[in-house]
C-alpha cells in the first residue's frame, strides 16, 4: 500500500512541476518575440513615446522574472490581467465561457463514453465478424475526418434539411438546463463522433490483448460462454487501459472543442482563444492556453493515477 501512495505522490509532484514549467513556457514564449510586444502591437509607425507609455502601462519595463511572478500570483488569485483588445478584465471574459465549454465537454462525454464502451466490447465479442470489420472501417474513417466536416454534415442534415436542432448554439447563463442541452446537442454530437471511434478501438484492442492470455484460454476450455468470458474474466483486467483511454479522450475533447465551438458559434473558451489569436490579444491567449493546458495536464494526471490504482499487479505486489 505504501508503495502505491508513494507512486501516486510522485506522479502528483511531477504533474505540479509540469504545470509550473508549462506556465513558464506560456509566459516566456512572448519574450521570444523579435523586438518586443509593445512595438509589435503598435506597429512600426508608433512613436518612441507611445511605445514607452504602452510598455509602462503593461509593466513591460520591469525585468521578466518580476513580471512572471506577478502574473502567476495574479492567476492563483483569479486575476488574469486585462485584455489588450477590449481593456476588460480577462477573468470576466473567461468566467461564463469556461462554464459553457465544460458543459459542452461534459455533455459530449456523457453520450460518448457509454456508447464507445458498448461498441468496443461488442466488437471484441464478435471479433472478425462483419460487424467488427464494419465498425473498424467506420471508426478508422471517423478518426480521419476533420471536425468541421462532421459538424457541417450534421448541420446540413439535422438542422437544415430536417430542422430538428438549431444550427447555432447560442446559450447564455439564463438558459434553463434542458434548453441548454437541446441547443448544444449538435456540437456535443460532433464531439461524440470524433472521440467515440478512438475510444472504441482502444477498448476493443485492450480486451483482445487480454483474450490471448492463458487464464482466458483456461476459461474457454472450461466451456464458458463467450460473453461470460469477456464480461467476467477479461473486462475487470481491462479496466486500467480503458480508463486511460476514456480520460485521454476527455483530454482530447477539451482541445477538439475549439473548432467545434467556432462552427456552431458556441460562446465558449475555444471561440475566445481563436478570436484573440486573430486580434493578437496576447494576454487573453496566454490565459486561455494556460487553462486548456492545465485541464489537459490534470486529465493526463488523473489517467496516470487511475492506472496505478487499478493495476492488480501493483495492488498485490510480490
Amino acid at each position: 500500500m505504501y508503495k502505491i501512495v508513494k507512486m501516486v505522490a510522485q506522479r502528483l509532484a511531477l504533474g505540479l512541476v509540469t504545470l509550473f514549467v508549462v506556465s513558464l513556457i506560456i509566459f516566456l514564449g512572448v519574450e521570444l518575440l523579435p523586438g518586443d510586444l509593445a512595438q509589435e502591437i503598435l506597429g512600426r509607425s508608433a512613436t518612441e513615446e507611445t511605445v514607452a507609455a504602452f510598455r509602462r502601462d503593461l509593466g513591460l519595463d520591469l525585468p521578466p522574472h518580476t513580471r512572471y511572478i506577478e502574473w502567476l500570483a495574479g492567476i492563483v488569485q483569479g486575476d488574469f490581467g486585462r485584455s489588450l483588445a477590449s481593456q476588460r478584465e480577462i477573468s470576466e471574459l473567461i468566467g461564463v465561457r469556461l462554464q459553457n465549454t465544460l458543459f459542452l465537454a461534459a455533455l459530449a462525454a456523457i453520450i460518448s463514453v457509454p456508447l464507445a464502451l458498448f461498441l468496443g466490447v461488442m466488437a471484441a465479442l464478435y471479433r472478425n465478424s462483419v460487424y467488427d470489420r464494419a465498425v473498424n472501417v467506420v471508426s478508422l474513417s471517423a478518426v480521419s475526418f476533420p471536425e468541421f466536416f462532421i459538424a457541417y454534415i450534421l448541420i446540413l442534415y439535422l438542422a437544415v434539411k430536417f430542422p430538428w436542432f438549431p444550427s447555432l448554439a447560442n446559450v447564455d447563463p439564463t438558459t434553463p438546463l434542458m434548453e441548454r442541452a437541446y441547443r448544444s446537442f449538435l456540437p456535443a454530437l460532433t464531439l461524440t463522433l470524433v472521440v467515440v471511434a478512438q475510444m472504441m478501438r482502444m477498448t476493443r484492442a485492450a480486451i483482445i490483448n487480454l483474450l490471448a492470455s492463458p487464464y482466458i484460454e483456461m476459461a474457454n476450455l472450461k466451456g464458458l460462454s463467450r460473453s461470460r468470458v469477456i464480461l467476467y474474466h477479461a473486462l475487470p483486467n481491462a479496466w486500467a487501459p480503458i480508463i486511460n483511454v476514456i480520460v485521454l479522450s476527455l483530454a482530447y475533447l477539451i482541445v477538439g472543442v475549439v473548432v467545434v465551438e467556432v462552427v456552431f458559434i458556441y460562446p465558449g473558451l475555444g471561440q475566445l482563444i481563436v478570436d484573440s489569436v486573430r486580434t493578437r490579444d496576447i494576454p487573453v491567449v496566454q490565459a486561455c492556453s494556460l487553462i486548456f493546458a492545465a485541464t489537459y495536464i490534470l486529465l493526463n494526471l488523473t489517467a496516470d493515477v487511475l492506472t496505478i490504482l487499478t493495476n492488480p499487479r501493483l495492488l498485490h505486489p510480490k
Partner: peptide
C-alpha cells in the same frame, strides 16, 4: 519533449501563432 507534449498541440500552435503572426 515531455514538456512540449504536456501542452495540447492545437493550443500550443495557437499560442505560438499569436506570438509570431
Amino acid at each position: 519533449v515531455d514538456v512540449l507534449m504536456a501542452i495540447p498541440q492545437l493550443i500550443f500552435a495557437l499560442l505560438l501563432l499569436t506570438i509570431v503572426g
